[in-house]
Amino acid sequence: MVEATALPAPKGTVLPGLGLTLGMTLAYLGLIVLLPLAAVFATAAGMGLDEILRLLMDPRTLAALRVSFATALLAAAINAVAGLVVAWVLVRYDFPLKRLVDGVIDLPFALPTAVAGIALAGLYGPNGWVGAPLAEAGLRVAYTPADIVVALAFIGLPFVVRTVEPVLADLDREYEEAAATLGASRLQVVSRVVMPVLLPPLLTGFALAFARGVGEYGSVIFIAGNLPYLSEVAPLLIVIKLEEYNYAGATTIAAAMLLTSFLMLLVINLLGNWTRRRAGHV
């Protein structure tokens, strides 16, 4: 009689070490990221919904959140436009020192935010190299959210450039040639054939820059002036609450920001899936 049928072939690979490495990964991630993050929600849960809402409705908190979200949105929009132009120029045109310029794009990723903060303050702040002459000409109002937008535009640029760049580089010239032979004008070629392909990465870059901008602290506080209700960002208010040992206040703001961050992450992932589905692999 035949013994029990052969075991089904194991799915995936035969490589060893899954248990060990997966265990390490989960333990590390749990201890460093998940457990501490849970502390925020545990603290929030301990406070009760009424208390959270009361703290959240505090005018200064609301103002700080509004400043953070509004400036991040505006800066991300600026970055979407500037990043698209920069990516286009880098991919499509030739000019001297192109490689150098391409390397410099990542500066905001590599430069510590505190350094970026004092440098931008020294340039575009009220007494800065560029800011002072502008102020004298009456073109600059000191300590407004506009300063925050400057800092966030610096921080967010590479997100857009680096998501758009590879997609544009992969876009075969033939699509544009095909559209041109079919009678489209250059404007129609760009708007109907190129832009639909660039829109998903552009949105992804926008979302990444926005998410980063909302939470940005280091580069902002040196240039913003930090006036409550006017140019005080949410992360700074968290720091201030913590310095007052107001854990509840800090936690409320943090929870509100985390929740939006998670939403952003979800949106980014959905966008990514949508892009892949739409683009297919022709």
Partner: peptide
Amino acid sequence: LTTLIDLPFSVSPVIAGLIYVLL
């Protein structure tokens, strides 16, 4: 799991500090 690994990138640095203070 892959998404969780990317999580710290989408958390404000200030919150990253805050969570350890809370703990």
